[in-house]
């Protein structure tokens, strides 16, 4: 691997976001810039007001749905290379949500990868995470503590099915609070649709439609808003953003059990604070083992961690001889323990 000590870093943090000096473009910038490469369509990564957007082609529909009609958005196939001012840029699956990408940036033999958000676990609604070799890896670190370890997705699916059947046996619906973009569709892909009808909150419904239009096969669903006021939801699975579970919108479901699907639900305190009946440990981020595996696979000598509780992982990486540090980005989640950040950041 090349020594890079005398050149300025290929990617650095400036007031707008992660900036590639040689290529004069930004990755997931939070203030308006002329040219943005965007890892995925979550609101803290995809913001309005940039001159030109580049996203992975499978995420084009989601990006367009979340940006004004006149935004200039270009899709790039996974693995396809783009030259920006002499810098080679390519996008590779991150396994986070539909169209999520890692950004690989290569300049004069030096390779940096910006992970965006990612997970290693299987997800039928998006392409699997692709390990990339690089010199420097800028990684997310949302769940950067060893207490966060995810169960197998099949176990989670079975757990939701069990809760759903129990609710159905009591003649009530089951309300599941999940991120409207990504997590909700992943749940749709994990559950057994023969148990009963599935109703979607408006925010979830709109994005699920985009998923279908983008070619993802999902079970049949009903928009809750499209049904008559007195519609009988007994035995149904209702998916809504977590913030809707305890609001006026959810009142129509009466005392139906409410569960939240989130990685934070690992910890009882977070679950009890939410005041829900059960927590389902389901995250679209890497768990502790996933972070270590992914970082290890890059072979990177320098690892910069962004959002999350970064200090413990920085320490562990340094103990392994990796030059690790923290980049203070404005991506969601002020702190690893801020349960509400993940649950509510999505509209």
């Amino acid at each position: 691997m090349n020594a890079r000590t005398h050149t300025p870093p290929l990617i650095r943090l400036d007031a707008q976001g992660l900036y590639c000096t040689a290529g004069d473009f930004w990755i997931d910038p939070w203030r308006p810039v002329p040219r943005a490469v965007v890892t995925h369509a979550h609101a803290d990564h995809l913001r309005q007001g940039h001159g030109q957007y580049t996203v992975a082609r499978p995420g084009l529909g989601l990006a367009r749905a979340r940006l004004p009609d006149d935004a200039s958005v270009t899709g790039l196939d996974y693995g396809e290379a783009l030259q920006i001012n002499g810098v080679r840029v390519s996008l590779h699956p991150a396994g986070h949500v539909l169209g999520s990408a890692q950004v690989r940036v290569e300049h004069r033999g030096e390779v940096w990868v910006v992970s965006g958000d990612y997970k290693l676990a299987a997800d039928a609604t998006c392409a699997p995470f692709e390990p990339l070799r690089c010199h420097t890896f800028i990684s997310e670190c949302t769940f950067g503590l060893p207490v966060y370890r995810w169960p197998e997705p099949s176990v989670i699916g079975a757990r939701i099915n069990t809760l759903w059947r129990e609710a159905a046996a009591e003649g009530v619906p089951l309300l599941v609070g999940a991120y409207a973009l990504g997590k909700a569709q992943r749940i749709l892909s994990l559950i057994d649709p023969t148990i009963g009808p599935i109703g979607l909150h408006g925010a979830v419904d709109a994005l699920t439609t985009v998923y279908r239009e983008s070619g993802v096969t999902l079970p049949a669903t009903l928009p809750v808003a499209g049904q008559a006021r007195g519609h009988d939801w007994a035995g149904a699975l209702i998916i809504a953003p977590p913030s809707a579970l305890n609001g006026t919108w959810a009142r129509r479901f009466g005392a139906a059990p409410r569960v939240v699907a989130s990685g934070w639900m690992t910890v009882r305190g977070a679950r009890r604070r939410r005041g829900v009946d059960a927590g389902v440990v389901l995250s679209d981020h890497a768990d502790w083992d996933g972070l270590l595996t992914a970082i290890d696979a890059t072979g990177a000598q320098q690892v910069l961690l962004t959002h999350g509780h970064t200090a413990p992982l920085v320490r562990v990486l340094q103990q392994r001889g990796i030059d690790a540090g923290t980049l203070r980005t404005e991506f969601a989640g002020e702190d690893g323990s801020d349960a509400e950040a993940e649950a509510d950041a999505s509209p």
Binding site: L145, V267, G269, P312
Partner: peptide
């Protein structure tokens, strides 16, 4: 048993807030 050091254990405990639960998760 979990192969982590005291500092990391303390970080975990701070995030979880319950010793019995922290250990079970590790």
């Amino acid at each position: 048993v979990s192969g982590i050091d005291e500092v990391l254990f303390a970080d975990c405990y701070e995030a979880v807030g319950d010793l019995a639960e922290t250990i079970a998760l590790l």
